[in-house]
Amino acid sequence: MKKLITILLLSTALLLPRAAIARDVIITAELKSYRGPGAYLAVYLTKPDGRYDSTLWIAGEKQKYYGHLRGWVRAVSRSGESVDGLTGASVGSGRTLNITANLSDAMIDAGYQIHVDTAVEDGGEHTNDAVVSLSKDNKGMTVGGRGFIRSLSVSM
């Protein structure tokens, strides 16, 4: 997480000459009940123009399956970023994934979006299973997913 904060601070430093103020953003993804083993999830941020900003979390530890998180692959490929330190266990049927990201205040209500791609062995894969805006208006608001995600919410 420290590394993420460093990256974020660097990328926002130019925009905000004054000391950047950051806050903890909690992202909660609750999965539906489905048949099959644990789901792989990619949680990542896009900029206001739709381009990739950064990866927040990858649930699922076998890199050979990351290709199934196709929207994220497409987004991250050009960045050449490593996901070291940003991965954890896959998420089982009906379980909830909670992520806390320390994000700059300047990113809130600025058109940034949180995307979640999902994939399950022998169960299909979803690019942009759920997408939610990084907005204070969305505080506590919940969106539904079209695949394995029952709900995705942001709170700050």
Binding site: Q63, Y66, G67, V73, R74, S77, R78
Partner: peptide
Amino acid sequence: STGYVPFPE
């Protein structure tokens, strides 16, 4: 496996 195949540029 080396993870995913990078998306074409």
